[in-house]
Design a binder for these strands. Sequence first.
DNA 1: GTGGTTGCAAAAAGTTTGCAGGCTC
DNA 2: GAGCCTGCAAACTTTTTGCAACCAC
Lengths: 149, 149
Amino acid sequence: MNIDPVGLFIEDCKKHGLNVTYQRLAVFKVISKHKGHPSAEDIYREVLKEYPRISLATIYTTLETLSKYSIISKVTPLHDTARYDYDQEVHHHLICINCRKIIDIKYDEFDYLWLPDDLKQNFKVLNYKIQFEGICPQCQSKSNQQQET
Amino acid sequence: MNIDPVGLFIEDCKKHGLNVTYQRLAVFKVISKHKGHPSAEDIYREVLKEYPRISLATIYTTLETLSKYSIISKVTPLHDTARYDYDQEVHHHLICINCRKIIDIKYDEFDYLWLPDDLKQNFKVLNYKIQFEGICPQCQSKSNQQQET
DNA sequence: GTGGTTGCAAAAAGTTTGCAGGCTC
DNA sequence: GAGCCTGCAAACTTTTTGCAACCAC
């Protein structure tokens, strides 16, 4: 019944026990209307137009909170520090969302992904990487231990 | 004939006209031996053991230089700022390595990737994202214009 | 009213830059 | 020896934090 993103947003907040503040609404509106993938700074500049007193720190806190409850998502789970790799063979990555470890995986099946023609025609694809997000074995056993305690 | 990474490294440097310095060798050795995907800081700490006078700035410069010539690779092309997204539908991304724009793509073909059993058994996969890296149409036409000039 | 949120300012974390001196080729 | 490269320190950018004031419920 409710296909209004703002309505959904309010429901989501209530579901998770989050207060619906003007700031959160404003941040959410900007993200949901934005065509691309805005950074905190982008969002800040946009929200400022409507709420000139909002603080950048609030933007960060809000984004972190909303990501935590999956109301929005962080496109770049590993943005905080650059990571480097020597292995020049084609391979893909498992990223543990808990400990942020990256594990290499190589399966031939992933090396010949079919690319749609209209994609290839517009965008010059040089390579692709598949990022699997999840929980690594170590973190799985840790969280089990905690539940048992 | 030469499967020694260090030998290959020296060749690569010469090929690109880069001086082979102790610092670059040390950085390279750490990366090529490292099991995971070290950050600049990780590499710095490791290199310090052997060259206590190296500077963190040198590590950064070296990593940037080596990435530029594809001697090593940066696992996280978008690490510099966090990017957020409202779209909660499953979708994948095109990343323009030139202007760093992110473009959403949705093709059903990518939504049912086959996952190997041993992968699923060890790592609890929650979702996956395919990142296509390449050049967006705008940047392609820009670089064509430049070549013509 | 109460507890969750915000604004502010300051600090932390990560990265880049300018310049003088040093090292590779 | 020439020019590239490094160390140092300082600056810059992005993000986080502590605390008092404030607002949603």
